[in-house]
Write a protein that binds this DNA or RNA. Structure first.
Lengths: 141, 141
DNA sequence: ATTGATAATGATATTTTATATCAATAATAC
DNA sequence: GTATTATTGATATAAAATATCATTATCAAT
């Protein structure tokens, strides 16, 4: 996943920020990580390999990644924010199991188009959206 | 809005909970309030009239109202949860202006049906959903 | 109406997640 | 190499929600 990395470090350069060891490690760990990871999980992953990284820096770097469009914040359920890689992935929606918490990614182009139409019909310029369908997954019903 | 009130107090009765002065006031204030109110806002509304009500009780009562299906929790943006009356209102989605924060309620039956279909196609039993479309409203574009 | 069991309350403490502070350090331009 | 200043990590703080707990209030049984 070389390109996503480059997006980030290009953003850093453009904004006259600095290329640091920590940022590099955090970005790479994020790109390697499971989808929908929390800041805390990412921090503890990194901690194992490199105990010299602070959680504040993880939060700060995730924020930067958000600013340059690399990830989305997903706030759902327990108040813990989850971060999801956005760049170069097709947009998708989520099915969320209310019993076990499983997240399933789905997509339906017809829905996407209708959403756009709906927004425009209300004199609204859509930029992005979030659709979460709550219910029971196969295992839990 | 008598019926919503009754839903709540019926739930209280069924669960062998108690009918208290505070619960009554909180529920009625919520039903009178603007849509998408926060716990804090509701608390401060109540405080003006009845300084004897505690914020913990407001939170607890909102939770109860959620359990009996009277309201939805909307977690968006700032980490502050907003509560929205659900009972006897048609389900709707939200357009959210990323500039001024305006919330516009919308609904499209075709989208609703497709969402249901999408969930079932994934072996998922949908219970409810949330669709938020972010963008710019008329004033802000 | 009185009483007994116990649910509910409000004040406060605690938890949880994210952000701010700040002295020390490290990255970059010159 | 040096000066400038962004970044870091530890820690404190903020902000929202929940837990604790002694006291009070509800309500069923009498």
């Amino acid at each position: 996943m070389k390109e996503a990395r480059d997006i980030f470090f290009n953003y850093v350069k453009v904004k006259n920020l600095r290329y640091t060891r920590q940022r590099e490690k955090i970005v790479e760990a994020f790109l390697r990580a499971d989808r929908h990871i929390t800041a805390e999980e990412l921090y503890s992953n990194l901690k194992k390999v490199d105990p010299e990284i602070g959680s504040a820096t993880v939060h700060r770097t995730l924020k930067l990644m958000g600013e340059c469009g690399l990830l989305d914040e997903i706030k759902v359920g327990s108040g813990k924010t989850r971060y999801e890689l956005k760049y170069k992935r097709e947009h998708h929606d989520h099915l969320i199991c209310i019993n076990c918490g499983r997240l399933i990614e789905v997509r339906d182009d017809k829905i996407e188009r209708l959403q756009d139409k709906l927004a425009r019909a209300n004199d609204f310029v859509p930029k992005w959206h979030r659709l979460e369908i709550y219910g029971l997954c196969t295992k839990c019903r």
